[in-house]
Design a protein around this nucleic acid. Structure first.
Lengths: 230, 230
DNA sequence: CCAAAAGTGTTTTACTTACACCCATGC
DNA sequence: GCATGGGTGTAAGTAAAACACTTTTGG
């Protein structure tokens, strides 16, 4: 490898969740002239903490710092990235395969999911990609390698973790209504929840602060705004 | 690296849980002439699935196949194995450091926990170690690097997963009494449980099969034996 | 018969779910 | 006033916890 600047055989992939218009979405990148879609990922510098590498990558793609991040699984099948797709991508971008041969090597990938407020983000593709776009979670394009499995696992773990620590609030602006929070939960869990029960359960956790009401201009009672008690 | 036979910068560590005498234990290795203790770990062959590598290592240390295994976290701090301890171990074993320099490189470690029936195991140390022994979970020797944190995280995840899939049964023989199962739960959760409630909860899951009674020779009613419905 | 531990029925409690009512707001 | 959605009180239903009674076994 010679003057390799990254750890060999190790990568990370990120499932970046956002929420808007009543549905859960993730960021997906499309590579130039290939019709191939993938999760945003990257590599770890030789002396860089794994967590730091992921944060660095997310900063580049979303512009955000201090993102809510959870590591959820490490994918290590020997052939998981031996699908020929990465070679296609390099060729389509006229990259010299010789100098980038290491990128075709076997990769073990540590997967993270991120929860962000979709309003604060302007997605930025990397040099190999011509777009980095939001896709609804149940309307994804086919993804390369094992990335579809990675998304499935991310969603599974997210569901399990939802209640602990009120993770859902990270998908919303700092102040939000109870209804918005409920919509987030419904999008993630994939089922309708009972309004009264939901409100009581959230408030009983004692982690929400109530603020002044929000006058929406709509023809009904104005809802309270809440924020998450850190 | 030249003719390296393992993936660079990547390792695994395993927290192998066993249960006997009312307490939860894990396997800890002690290195020759150093007084240094560590979790059993290993490396991944170039074309080997990550899961397979871990199973291979466990087979060597316990003699068992088809072990219950869960991957729970990947530890990737840049300096996590830069503590000088591994160098001490190599020196004490009169290893030529030059040919094993790669073992001192930065290592990202994927951590797994295993649940096994302690009766079926005869622990086997590797060539650098002079013992591989059971230690009670709350009476561990100091461990090298970040291995203490790894154990803590393993226990934390194990607690969370206990109820799902009745993981606890993997620590017992194929047939066991309800009392034994309760003791396992108590050891893991670190608290006494109510006998009646425990029995009902376990049976209500519908995953246990009741067999003939076990006559222990003790001066009380004989308990039923149960096994786990696969 | 007694002590010890197992199995199970009953009661109590807490929690979740469902329903309903009232409130605020714009038309 | 009325339709719409928000907040909360009440009741029904369900699940967990505590308690206690009975059973079985060896001494």
């Amino acid at each position: 490898m010679g003057d390799q600047t990254f750890l060999n055989n190790l990568a990370y992939d990120s499932v970046i969740f956002g929420f808007s218009g009543d549905s859960l979405k993730i960021l997906v990148m499309e590579y130039h002239n290939t019709g191939l879609f993938a999760l945003p990922g990257g590599f770890i510098n030789l002396e860089e903490d794994l967590d730091k590498a992921v944060k660095r990558g997310l900063k580049e793609r979303t512009g955000l710092e201090n993102i809510y991040l959870e590591q959820f699984y490490t994918f290590g099948n020997a052939k998981r990235n031996r699908t020929g797709e990465m070679e296609t991508i390099l060729k389509a971008n006229h990259m010299e395969i010789e100098t980038l041969r290491w990128i075709l090597d076997r990769m073990v990938s540590v997967a993270y999911y991120a929860l962000i407020n979709i309003e604060e983000v302007t997605p930025a593709p990397d040099s190999l990609s011509d777009s980095c776009t939001w896709y609804e979670i149940d309307n994804l394009p086919p993804l390369i390698q094992d990335h579809t499995q990675i998304v499935e696992k991310a969603l599974e773990v997210l569901k399990q973790n939802l209640d602990r620590k009120l993770e859902g609030v990270n998908l919303l602006p700092e102040k939000f209504t109870m209804n918005q929070l409920q919509k987030v939960y419904e999008a993630i869990m994939g089922e309708k929840l009972h309004r009264g029960a939901f409100q009581r359960k959230m408030l009983s956790l004692g982690s929400l602060v109530r603020h002044e009401k929000q006058f929406s201009g709509a023809a009904h009672k104005a809802p309270y705004l809440y924020s998450f008690k850190s």
